[in-house]
């Protein structure tokens, strides 16, 4: 139609306007997505009166750490941190090891029933988690492990999505190295441990980070697995703090501070390893 590469679009007023509008949109939404965290941080250092009077202000006046002192002195916060750390560590180690083991077998080892196991993994991934709340309670209760650390950890030690991630990864790496190792007489586990796993580093890092984030933030499972306050993890403890005796409407610096402390570990991991998060979420789009 018109001559190629019409110069009118380049340079000049329209590009300038486009750039300005583009940044305006970006900055506006950056505020929408990040300013709540600024408000959260600022208000956790305010007095209750200041937080109620100037909730939007990013500057505490006066500045006080009273809320944090109270979090550690008059709530079970240290216990929740301990429980969360323990549970998160166990689940993350378990998932990275067991998911990769199963994923490797499903991708590379030929054994009777492999197709059925793969189908089960895919089917389990499709089951919505919230639907499983009552069923999980039933089985924990029946096994006599309801309200124990075992109930918090064991059911989450393997996740179907993680197995699937590892299977897809192992399908995508060449087989030549491991065949050579096997020819040399190395056993299956030895080949897996010293040849395959080191190659799988990027996938293992992604799995570690996703497992850490998921188990640190896990909430609904704790609701049906335990009821004793001795076994509360951070999300469960904070949920209790907010909806429980400390009641609605007051103590905002304390609640915001507690939520802030629970967010910090994931935030740090996110900043350091954000490309793995992005890969996990975006490239992860398709199950097919």
């Amino acid at each position: 139609m018109t001559a190629p590469g019409r110069p009118a679009r380049r340079g000049g007023f329209r590009t300038l306007l486009g750039t300005f509008l583009g940044y305006a949109v970006l900055v506006f939404f950056a505020l929408v997505f990040l300013y709540p965290f600024v408000i959260q941080t600022a208000n956790s250092f305010k007095t209750e009166a200041d937080a109620a009077a100037h909730p939007l202000s990013p500057v505490p006046d006066p500045f006080t750490t009273a809320a944090f002192t109270k979090i550690f002195d008059s709530t079970a916060f240290p216990l929740w941190i301990g429980n969360s750390t323990l549970v998160t560590l166990l689940i993350t180690v378990g998932r990275v090891f067991l998911d990769s083991l199963a994923g490797y077998a499903l991708a590379r080892l030929s054994f009777r029933g492999r197709g059925a196991v793969t189908a089960m993994i895919v089917a389990v991934m499709a089951v919505p988690g919230v639907v499983l709340l009552i069923p999980k309670f039933l089985v924990l209760n029946q096994l006599g492990i309801y309200n124990t650390y075992t109930a918090l950890v064991l059911p989450l030690l393997v996740d179907a999505a993680g197995v699937f991630i590892m299977r897809q990864f192992f399908l995508s790496v060449p087989t030549s190295l491991e065949e050579a190792a096997r020819m040399d007489g190395a056993g299956v586990f030895r080949t897996y441990w010293s040849i395959i796993l080191p190659m799988a580093r990027p996938a293992l890092i992604t799995l570690t980070i996703l497992s850490f984030q998921a188990s640190w933030n896990e909430f609904p499972h704790t609701v049906v697995a335990v009821q004793s306050p001795q076994l509360f993890t951070l999300p469960r403890g904070i949920a209790n703090l907010v909806s429980g005796s400390l009641g609605a409407g007051t103590q905002y610096p304390l609640k915001l501070g507690a939520a802030l402390l629970a967010t910090i570990p994931v935030a740090i991991i996110f900043v350091i390893f954000q490309r793995y998060f992005v890969r996990g979420a975006a490239e992860g789009a398709s199950k097919e």
């Binding site: 997505f33 933030n217 999300p235 939520a259 802030l260």
Partner: peptide
């Protein structure tokens, strides 16, 4: 940078974020 900023809320704890929104939408909130 903006991509990271927009994605950050997705990785945080649903419970912690709910607490923040309780404050944002409180009667005397932000």
């Amino acid at each position: 940078f903006f991509r990271t900023a927009f994605y950050f809320p997705s990785v945080t704890s649903s419970v912690a974020i709910s607490v923040v929104f309780l404050f944002l939408f409180a009667n005397s909130g932000a």
